[in-house]
Amino acid sequence: MIMMKTGVKYAVGVVIAGIAVYNSLYFRPLDEKLAEGQEIAFDATALVEEMWGNELLAVYDSATDIRVLLERLKSDPESTFEQEAQALGIGNIGYFKVKGEGKVLELNENNVLLQLGDQSIEIETEFIFGNAVRDASGLIRINDYDETSDFNSISEAINDKIRKEVIPAFRAKVSTENTVSFKGALELNKAHLNLSQIEVIPVSLQILP
């Protein structure tokens, strides 16, 4: 009797384990799986090329005037961050789309200093790093990408395009006393808001006649 009970116990166990394994695994030919993976390999540079003009720059057309933004940040940072900033997740870092016009004060090795009214801002021309342009745009969302590395590579591709196409043409022509129109991204920390040193990563730079 006891033997029979133990036998039934083991049999039930084996059946449950069998059902669990059957519903846990599936098998495919490896070459088929690898071929499928290659078909969907991610190309960040191609994506950025595709979206640069019609989507990315178009989004920056609706950027907030930087002087208006800075005034709002001075008077009510909380609601300005809430209304204007893009953020990747929770935290104090916010990314803003900004535009404006200013007179060139200084041509520095790493940036161009512009005067906008009583405020001076730096247009970065050397160290184009980080995710400010990608995240300020609000176009590219992490949840749309399976791999974090794919998501990060979009920023690399955007920054690379700015370094190779936006900056050199501008630096070659700009001189002090020029008036420059710019669009770009600004990264600010709500908890340590420093509005005395504003650094904009440009997506578009024009020397006005």
Partner: peptide, 24 residues
């Protein structure tokens, strides 16, 4: 769940369902 197990010598890919990875 994401990569499964690849066995090149047998040209076999073993994929896991959600139940499979929970048990694993």
């Amino acid at each position: 769940l994401k990569y499964g197990i690849e066995i090149p010598s047998a040209n076999l890919y073993i994929g896991f369902t959600v139940l499979g990875v929970v048990l694993a």
